[in-house]
């Protein structure tokens, strides 16, 4: 049961990330996941200082708010201060992150944040925090959180599929057709924030980036349509979770990092094979 809960939670988180990541790749906003996964630290710290203890839903709320603020502020600076989008993103998230660290040192007595936790996540501890309802043990809390986030993502993506497709591939056409491009942008940003924040707690800051970007990039190499890309990204993310988990059992390393490494090596392997194929084809 212990391994089962870890695997199923990781697989749910990876599914959410693969779907959202595909849209980020197509919109050339890949570094946004990295930025949000850093700046949410400020949200978590602020909630700590405000209500004084770690309650999961308030943490999620605070972190999601700061995630949205990161997306909005960097967009605002990009447009009004004439900065390149990546520079304004870097400016915003590093500043929020440094503010979070300053607050942590200022109120060190009130904030109990573990650096290890932020880095690695707490994958091996997933099964220990369980959710009980009317004295029935419903299984780990992290599992339910991951499930809820995945369901929200699926519903929004299903409802807005055509809109997301249009605004990702033809933003100008979408504008002339009267689609609210800005609204869909911020809906996507909200999904990214929720996904990053919920996953962040389970898998740690950097694996979120790996799961968002790497399976989706791998899928991007093969995909012929957006739907196709979603499916492929999902498949690659599940392969990464399964193989990565096996590797971490074998080498006794951190689960989250092993999954990230597996996903990345899979992408590099596919790139090398494609290169070799191309070379033999052009040689023949």
């Amino acid at each position: 049961m212990y391994e089962f809960w870890i695997l199923i939670t990781a697989s749910l988180v990876a599914s959410s990330c693969a779907l959202i990541g595909s849209l980020l790749i197509l919109r050339r906003m890949s570094m946004l996941g990295d930025a949000i996964s850093h700046s949410v630290l400020l949200g978590i710290v602020l909630v700590y200082l405000w209500i004084g203890h770690a309650s999961l839903h308030w943490m999620l709320f605070g972190a999601a708010m700061v995630g949205l603020m990161t997306a909005w502020l960097s967009q605002f600076i990009h447009q009004h201060a004439h900065l390149p989008p990546d520079a304004s993103l870097g400016l915003v998230f590093t500043w929020l992150f440094s503010l979070a660290i300053i607050l942590i040192t200022l109120y060190a007595d009130h904030v109990h944040l573990d650096q290890e936790h932020v880095l690695y996540g707490e994958m091996a501890f997933i099964p220990f925090t369980t959710l009980t309802l009317a004295n029935i043990n419903l299984g780990p809390q992290a599992f339910w959180l991951a499930l809820v986030v995945l369901i929200i993502n699926l519903i929004v993506l299903w409802i807005g599929f055509e809109r997301f497709k249009l605004t990702s591939f033809h933003p100008t056409l979408a504008l002339t057709l009267g689609v609210q491009v800005g609204v869909w942008h911020y809906i996507l940003m909200t999904l990214v924030s929720f996904t990053v924040v919920a996953s962040f707690d389970v898998v740690g800051a950097i694996l979120v980036v790996a799961l968002l970007v790497i399976p989706a990039s791998t899928a991007y190499l093969f995909a012929k349509s957006l739907k196709h890309m979603f499916w492929l990204a999902w498949v690659f993310s599940q392969i990464a979770v399964l193989v990565g988990f096996a590797i971490s059992m074998w080498l006794d390393t951190v689960i989250s990092a092993s999954i990230g490494v597996t996903a990345g090596l899979l992408l590099l392997l596919i790139l090398v094979i494609k290169q070799l194929q191309q070379r033999t084809r052009s040689g023949a």
Partner: peptide, 17 residues
């Protein structure tokens, strides 16, 4: 941009591992 994010997360994962 995607290549940058891929390299960042892959290398950092290797480091953490």
């Amino acid at each position: 941009d995607a290549a940058m994010a891929v390299v960042l997360s892959l290398f950092f994962s290797i480091g953490l591992m």
